[in-house]
Amino acid sequence: MHEITILVELIKMVETAAIENNIAEIDTIVVQIGEMSSIIPRYMMEYFPNTAEGTLLENSKLKIEMIPANGLCHHCNKVFNIVKNKGKCPCCKADDWEILSGMEFILKEIVIREQV
């Protein structure tokens, strides 16, 4: 359950940016998670409220966008989704590929709550 550790560090990073920029309230943080990363999005969503409790992000939302696991086939140079194709190139059926995307964890956006 390394998701809690990741959330703690993410919250610290966002809080630091908020303080440095005099931001009082954050509405949403948007993260991107690679389809083949070891991070489980469901756990991130489940643990976020408790991890954010008592921080500047206590009333914030977490939005997750998935990055597809794309690979480049070394035999036919086709780019394909590794997960959907179970590690085999759909064109030539080779399993000799290079991963292009899908392992990432990116803080994409911090959405500030509008002051009324």
Rank of each mutant, 00 (worst) to 15 (best):
H2K: 06
H2I: 09
I4V: 12
I4P: 02
T5E: 14
I6P: 11
L7P: 09
L7A: 04
L10P: 15
L10I: 06
I11Q: 03
I11W: 04
I11C: 04
K12V: 03
K12D: 15
V14P: 06
A17M: 14
I19P: 06
E20D: 14
E20Q: 13
N22K: 09
E25Q: 14
E25R: 02
D27V: 01
T28F: 09
I29V: 13
V30F: 10
V31D: 06
I33F: 07
G34N: 07
E35Y: 06
E35C: 02
M36Y: 03
S37D: 06
S37Y: 06
S38D: 13
I40Q: 08
Y43P: 12
M44S: 07
M44P: 13
M45F: 12
M45I: 11
E46R: 11
E46K: 09
E46D: 12
E46C: 13
Y47T: 00
F48S: 03
P49F: 05
N50K: 12
A52W: 02
E53V: 07
T55D: 05
L57Y: 01
L57V: 02
E58G: 03
E58Q: 14
S60P: 10
K63L: 13
I64V: 12
I64C: 02
I64S: 01
I64R: 07
M66A: 06
I67G: 02
P68C: 00
P68S: 05
A69M: 00
A69C: 09
G71P: 00
H74D: 14
H75E: 13
C76G: 08
K78I: 10
V79D: 04
V79K: 05
V79F: 07
F80D: 05
F80W: 08
F80T: 01
N81D: 11
N81T: 06
I82C: 02
I82K: 03
K84S: 10
K88F: 10
C91A: 11
C91N: 12
C91W: 14
D95G: 09
D96E: 14
D96H: 10
W97H: 08
W97C: 05
W97R: 02
W97N: 03
I99Q: 13
S101V: 06
S101F: 06
G102C: 00
G102W: 05
M103D: 15
F105V: 14
F105N: 02
L107Q: 10
L107H: 09
I110V: 11
I110C: 07
I112R: 05
I112H: 05
E114V: 13
E114A: 10
Q115R: 14
V116L: 14
